[in-house]
Design a protein around this nucleic acid. Structure first.
Lengths: 242, 242
DNA sequence: CTCCACTGGTATATATTTCATACCAGCATA
DNA sequence: TATGCTGGTATGAAATATATACCAGTGGAG
């Protein structure tokens, strides 16, 4: 009796050439090599450059057009049409090869994941932190305390702060995940950071995190980090349109 | 207006499904999951497992046969035919440029991260799992119980098992991280899966995970998952050359 | 031993992707 | 306006992948 309930999610997936081409062009747009308004080479030229047929090029360009990244007009060359908003939505969702473009990482998933990763990092950092690390964090706290009125500077320091702690988890994968999730969250809450009160509160929470790390107390570090992420989450969520 | 010093130079290459399948099987041979003389699942079975047509499977197997890695005979199952000499010539020479980025990640970081992510997933899955999910997991357990002597089948089912649970975390990011970490871990522990005892133990641990999920008990699910990952970790570590 | 369920081997038809080669229609400019 | 670009379209061919059959060799259960 050999039936097969093997519905395999991890099936063999074949990427077509037009998809590969579309991805390459998207990458060029994301990296700024191609900017809004830039002319693309002609379809015949692209076909030669990528060593594919013109029909394949047209297929790839059609995908880009569908994503709203390209403007094609009969008779003239195609132009990149990439507003900051569209670019951001692409930058945040690299797993975009499927048709469900605008679907994406909802705010809850991002912060839920941040809690998981940052908590684990805080525990490990409390065990591995050393004097040099604490000194770095103190310096960052000092910088943050002087930037309550400068959201841009505070954000840069904030990112650095979390990255330094992540480094003391001594786990490259967790560091990478934390950086990635920070970026996701940042793109969601850009507007929120402009608020005065939220910056000061973040600073105070940072202070508590450093205290726990200095004490070498994993439980306290995890609690402080969790409380911080939670606070950022709720502030962000309340500010969202929905 | 003359511009276009464009950086398009690379031709784009399309990998066919049979090539992908052949690469997967070669990888299994190189890592010792498939050894000289081992039977391969039947063509029809492989077609279902990889969700491709039987003709595509035959194409992939034909490539392996051409490389001298496989012995197909009318009426019987195909057998791996891989002398040490042939394996070595494959391990060194061919265009196997891919897997190198994983080698930088040490085994401890991978499993530490897996524990973090899979524990979180288990907790969430216990809250969100439904009858359909439990049915899927039961079917996978049933399949696994019949594949104690078939590392290939068991591994494929094992991957599916973890993926289904991850899906019930209802968090796309955690799902992506879990899949990625599974792949990392798999590349490290392929040899271990060939051991008879480790397969049966994995199965029993899977059963306990499903029990906890069925009970809807997040704590128990986390404990069961953590114990499972731990077990895989220790087995893998003890098998490593170092 | 025979039988038959399994195995690989084969044939057919169809859909998709990619390609090459045309020709048509819109745009810019000399 | 006329010429040479541009994108838009149509056709046929090849390669790939799928689905559905049926044929032929193997090996184990009865």
């Amino acid at each position: 009796m050999k039936q097969t309930p093997f519905a395999f999610e991890k099936a063999l997936k074949n990427q077509t050439k037009k998809e590969i081409l579309a991805d390459k062009l998207i990458e060029m747009i994301l990296t700024g090599l191609l900017r809004d308004g830039d002319e693309l080479p002609s379809e015949r030229e692209l076909a030669q450059l990528f060593e594919v047929s013109r029909e394949t090029v047209r297929g790839g360009l059609a995908l880009l057009t569908g994503y709203g990244l390209l403007n094609v007009s009969h008779g003239s060359k195609s132009r990149v049409c990439a507003s900051e908003a569209v670019i951001d939505s692409f930058r945040n969702h690299p797993a975009r090869q499927q048709g469900d473009e605008l679907n994406n990482l909802d705010i809850e998933s991002v912060f839920e994941s941040r809690i998981v990763v940052e908590s684990a990092i805080a525990r490990r950092a409390a065990r591995h932190i050393d004097e040099a690390g604490l000194k770095k964090l103190d310096a960052l706290l000092e910088a943050q305390s002087q930037h309550f009125d400068s959201p841009v500077n505070f954000q840069l320091s904030d990112q650095n702060f979390h990255h330094v702690i992540a480094e003391y988890s001594r786990n490259e994968i967790l560091i990478r995940y934390a950086d990635e999730l920070y970026t996701y969250a940042l793109n969601i809450r850009r507007q929120v950071m402009a608020e005065h009160g939220s910056i000061k509160r973040s600073y105070e929470e940072h202070v508590r995190i450093v205290e726990a790390l200095r004490a070498g107390d994993p439980d306290a570090a995890e609690r402080a980090m969790l409380s911080h992420i939670d606070s950022v989450y709720y502030t962000t969520r309340d500010k969202m349109p929905h």
